[in-house]
Every structure is written in C-alpha cells, then in structure tokens.
C-alpha cells in the first residue's frame, strides 16, 4: 500500500542549526492498516506526514503509494489520493464559505465535470446524508458559514471532507489535540467509524497512549527520526499503557546511549 524506503531529510543543511529530522526511515503499510504513531516532540512524526503529503522534497529515499513512485509528485497532486487532518481545526476548512460550498470544493476531487451552475440538488442531498452521519445536526445548516462552527464541529467536518471521496491513505496529525476531552472522544469515535466503513489505510499521530493502543491494528514509536518500535497483532493486544511507556523509556534511552557512544 504505502512504502517508505530509506527516507532521509535534514533541515537547515550545512548550517549549525542542521537537524536530521528523518534518519533512513523505512516502513511498509498493508491495505487497511490503521497505524497509530507515538513519540516525543521533535521525534519526526509530523515530518513523516509532511514527507508523505509532499510539503517538502526528500534528501534521499523513495515514497511508493500503491506501487507508484510519488517521491516527486507535487503536493496538490498527491492530495488526490491522500486525505490529511491537522491539529488546528481551522486549517481544513474555508471559514467564509458555507458548509455546502466547502463540501462541494472537496467533492470536485471525485467529480471534475460537475455542473457549472453551482451545487445541484442531487449533490445537496448527498452532502446532507453524509453530514447526518456525523450526528452533529450540521445537515440542517448547509447554508451556514463554516466560521460560525465550533472547533469540534469544524474538525468533524474536515474529517468528512477528507474522506468523502475515499482516499487511498488518511493522515491524522493529532487531529483531536486541540479539542476538549468530550469532543475529542466524539471525533475519535467518528474517525474509527469512517475509517472502518471505508477500510481506509490510516496513520494517526497521537500523544494519547491509551487511544494509540485502542484504535487501529498497529502502533509505531518514533525517536530521532527513526522508528524504534513497531508492534501489531497479539503482542499489541496484550500490552498495557504502563508497559508501553516503560518500553518507550527503555528504547529511547538506548538510542540516546548509542548517541553518547558515538559522540565519545
């Protein structure tokens, strides 16, 4: 499905601020995988997403999506196949446009030859049925400007927009971190539902270790631009949060020790 082959990225190369954000990272995702990613700040989690999404070009390595090399494909072209959600709920929607206009915009992705005379009633019915699935009452507010919605509502709407045309890959970058706990749970629940319904291959960054273990079928731990732990199946089912934390400490410590050895 998705294959990252030895990808490398150093920011501010050749300056004293040089930071190797991705260090020979490789991973293979199978169709339908739901991978949760954990790791401390600066571990390179978001950088992996930016590399896959095309925000910058790699120093070396290859990115393959469904066996096609997308390493040099521009961001907007990758977006045809990749849906993305960010921590900031304001980032995925246009505030001065109505809910139906926002939905129509992303719906263009599937339907390049739509009517030139605005949104048709058929499309409107489709949007309404999709919004009803969110259970937030947004289906009655098609003509409201998105800027009037709360952060949670906007993030749920963004989730719907990112998945309305089923993407090959869904990238969730701490998409519930800016929401209150109750809303965050609700959005997570919606995420699980939508991902399961479309059997979408998904990667989710989270700082919530519990939800990292509850959601999905595979968990990855990152440190210093590398994957230090990759668990799935039975092993993942049996592991508890404290055990995982302990493992994280131990694993990242060894990496640190390695660094010290290198520097000595």
């Amino acid at each position: 499905m998705l294959e990252l082959q030895n990808i490398n990225k150093t920011f501010n190369k050749g300056t004293p601020n040089a930071k190797q954000a991705l260090n020979n990272l490789s991973i293979h995702l199978y169709p339908g995988d739901f991978v949760s990613i954990i790791g401390s700040n600066g571990a390179g989690k978001s950088t992996v997403f930016n590399a896959i999404g095309g925000s910058f070009l790699l120093d070396s390595g290859h990115i393959l999506l469904e066996k096609k090399d997308i390493t040099f494909l521009p961001e907007h072209k990758r977006a045809q196949q990749i849906g993305r959600l960010f921590q900031d709920p304001l980032r995925g929607t246009a505030p001065n446009m109505t809910i139906e206009e926002n939905l129509a915009l992303v719906y263009l992705r599937a339907n390049k030859h739509r009517s030139i005379f605005g949104i048709t009633n058929k499309e409107r019915d489709f949007f309404r049925s999709k919004l009803a699935e969110l259970n937030l009452g947004l289906e009655d507010r098609l003509k409201s400007k998105v800027g009037l919605l709360s952060g949670g509502q906007r993030q749920a709407l963004t989730l719907l927009m990112a998945t309305m045309v089923t993407p090959k890959l869904l990238l969730l970058d701490e998409h519930t971190a800016a929401l209150d706990p109750a809303t965050a749970d609700k959005v997570l629940e919606l995420t699980a539902k939508i991902v399961a319904a479309g059997n979408i291959t998904t990667m989710m960054i989270t700082h919530n270790i519990a939800s990292a273990l509850n959601l999905g079928n595979r968990t990855i731990m990152m440190n210093n631009g590398q994957i230090i732990l990759d668990i799935s199946g039975e092993k993942r089912k049996q592991i508890t949060v404290p055990q995982l934390l302990e493992l994280f400490k131990e694993k990242s410590q060894t990496v640190l020790d390695d660094d010290r050895i290198l520097l000595a």
């Binding site: 907007h76 446009m97 992303v106 263009l108 992705r109």
Partner: peptide, 15 residues
C-alpha cells in the same frame, strides 16, 4: 474563493 480563504484547503482538494 477558497484560495483567499484557506490555500491549504485548495491544495488538499487537489487543486
């Protein structure tokens, strides 16, 4: 219209 409002969204709509 979305370009002036949120260019990120335009990009993620593959435009």
């Amino acid at each position: 219209r979305a370009t002036g409002d949120n260019p990120d969204l335009v990009r993620s709509s593959s435009i």
